[in-house]
Amino acid sequence: MASRNLLLPLIVVALSQAGSAQSPTYGIGRAPTADEIRAWDISIGPDGKELPPGRGTAKDGAQLFLQKGCGGCHGRTGSMAPAPTLIKSDGTTRNPYPCLQPCVNDNNVIALHSPYATVMWDYINRGMPLGKEQTLAPDEVYALTAFLLFKNNVIAEDDVMDAQSLPKVVMPNREGAALPPEPWQHGVPRLRNYPR
């Protein structure tokens, strides 16, 4: 009975909203302050519009890589270590550690497959260092991103990474990256005529 009473306004609302401008129905929840949104919004899209001010180069990043303990898990050379491979190795030695799932090894160096360098900034910022996430300053994240991009032959050692340059970096996979077809539609098979 109670649920029927709840559903009825829901249906009426759904019908009335179909053709007109949306307006709040329940009045539950509050508006976040601009500061609250800024503090929580750590998403960096491919166009980089959310990137904060700051800058860094590969040289700064090389020092930070060791200072911040990155080398402790990923190896001083960014490979041949228990944590995922960050820098392609010379290929002459085999990593003695089992490849963790999802397996990130020499053929699949972390984030290099992404068509946009912004994901590298975003992930270092939100997810590293392990156990001290979200403690790096923007300059430090720019520098570490520059270091990894340089060591994987994507940018030059002196290239400065900042909010303008990072989204413009041409990743090796910039053109070879298809996504699931858009827009997603209810009741449509993933791939027509697959498998037959």
């Binding site: 998403s43 899209g45 491919p46 166009d47 999802p102 984030a111 497959h113 992404s114 068509p115 946009y116 912004t118 994901v119 975003d122 992930y123 939100r126 997810g127 996979n173 070879g176 990256a177 298809a178 996504l179 699931p180 077809p181 858009e182």
Partner: peptide, 16 residues
């Protein structure tokens, strides 16, 4: 737009 997060980029593929 699609935001290509760390958890997203594993879904891209050369073949559409």
């Amino acid at each position: 737009r699609h935001y290509m997060t760390y958890d997203d980029y594993g879904h891209i593929n050369a073949d559409p």
